[in-house]
């Protein structure tokens, strides 16, 4: 009974990412979209926080948002397209979007 958390705001502008990490439990997943992918900027505190997540909390990112921002895919993140996004929402029992 795991939850996919969907983030879309910049971790530097908004607290939803930090709050999400408080609610992220074993088996839950994290999908970064929109400006939330700025958390994958290496050398940043959000990057370190995500890299430190246990392996039972997988991290995903929407490929188009990484590309738009010129960001590389870190080795602890799986980039997905929209077909992969759909599949993730089916793999997890529920999706919690941080609006």
């Amino acid at each position: 009974m795991a939850t996919l958390h969907l983030l879309s705001r910049s971790p530097f502008a908004d607290t939803s990412g930090a709050s999400c990490l408080r609610l992220l439990g074993p088996g839950d997943g994290l999908l970064l979209s929109g400006d939330a992918v700025h958390a994958l900027q290496s050398g940043s505190q959000p990057f370190d926080a995500l890299r430190a997540l246990p392996a039972d909390r997988p991290c995903f990112a929407l490929a188009e948002d990484l590309a738009a921002r010129g960001l590389a895919v870190p080795d602890f993140v799986q980039a997905v397209d929209y077909a992969g996004f759909v599949e993730l929402t089916l793999r997890f029992e529920r999706t919690n979007s941080w609006l």
Binding site: G34, T95, W98, L99
Partner: peptide, 10 residues
């Protein structure tokens, strides 16, 4: 539905 997906924020 089998899934409810919400879109919002930015």
């Amino acid at each position: 539905a089998d899934r409810l997906i919400c879109f919002g924020g930015d």
